[in-house]
């Protein structure tokens, strides 16, 4: 992998389920349960495969009425939370 290749993020194998379009994720690391809203749920689905931040932000603009800059900011902030909770890994 080139040193300049963008980081890709993938979700870890943790227990989760989706009810009424909202993902519920259990974090074995922190023993917390997380309820995601629709856009965070979309991110969670996208990260079934390893994705770059740009890819995900672009997808967000396709699905929701949001510009690319705001989408990037949102994706970053939510990824930060996912990392804290041990729910995703960078590749």
């Amino acid at each position: 992998m080139s040193l300049n290749a963008p980081l890709r993020v993938q979700r870890k194998s943790v227990p989760w389920q989706e009810i009424d379009g909202q993902a519920i994720i259990l974090s074995p690391k922190t023993n917390k349960a997380h309820e995601l809203n629709a856009s965070a749920t979309l991110l969670w689905h996208l990260m079934e495969q390893a994705r770059t931040l740009d890819e995900m932000a672009k997808k967000m603009t396709d699905e929701f009425e949001i510009d690319l800059v705001s989408a990037c900011r949102d994706v970053e902030s939510i990824l930060e939370r996912f990392v804290e909770e041990g729910l995703v890994e960078y590749q």
Binding site: I24, L26, N31, K32, A33, H34, E35, L36, A40
Partner: peptide, 12 residues
């Protein structure tokens, strides 16, 4: 965008 990380028990 939000993750609602209430305590385990309230989400559950």
């Amino acid at each position: 965008m939000s993750i609602n990380s209430l305590t385990h028990y309230s989400v559950i």
